[in-house]
Amino acid sequence: MVHILEARDVSKHFGGIGALEDVSFKIRKGAIISIIGPNGAGKTTLFNCLTGIARPDRGAIYFMENEISKLPAHRVTELGIARTFQNIRLFPEMTVIENVMVAQHLRVRYGLLSAIAHNRTFRKKEKDIIEKAFEYVGFVGLENFARTPACNLSYGSQRRLEIARALATEPGLLLLDEPTAGMNAIETMEVMDLIAQIRELGKTIVLIEHDMKLVMGISEWIIVLDHGVKIAEGTAEEVRNDPLVIDAYLGKEAVQ
């Protein structure tokens, strides 16, 4: 199995307006792939379709040979896709460590009765959950804030926490929706390093970015969306020189 994810002719409309039109692509296992395109190109809608938060009107999505386009979000996560959100969606009143603990929901299970009885199974599994949570929190560099409520973190740290939370669901495929939005240059570099480290763990990563330059270096394959249509894909070099991309995407930035 070379490809971990395949989308075939995925379309999604909102009240007659096409947010995605027959988008097809394949994602190779273990790669870092970027989906780029100007604002309103349909990138987040695509993520929503891939993760079961939105249901495509047409088309099919295969994740490791499973058709997932009609599954609810929690089933998709169970199969191994995790994501972060462009507009951060943490559990604000929970602490950093609790945010990551709750994300192990699918991976560490025990019954309600063992929770009430505090039996050995419960104690052992809760210990596992906490230990793993500290691992993930440490991995993204938030170990000093473990007991801080998530809403009190700085913006950059909240994005890191979202990544830790996504990792805690033990995904094979990680979707990051503009992970560096609103960050300064140093923070952006740190996050890019973090992404490279996550790939070392053997995860496939798909990034959404509207800043093309940012992802050129890190991604080995780039998919370009514009107005809900895939206009190009290829290596950074190929995409950069694609006349359609220059026209529709770089052209716009030049005008701006």
Binding site: T51, T77, F85, F91, V102, T169
Partner: peptide, 20 residues
């Protein structure tokens, strides 16, 4: 696990479904 899941869905339902 159950209590944490409840609080997560109170805090942000979409995020809760996205972590499974």
């Amino acid at each position: 696990r159950t209590g944490r899941a409840w609080i997560a869905l109170r805090e942000n339902e979409i995020a809760a479904s996205s972590i499974g």
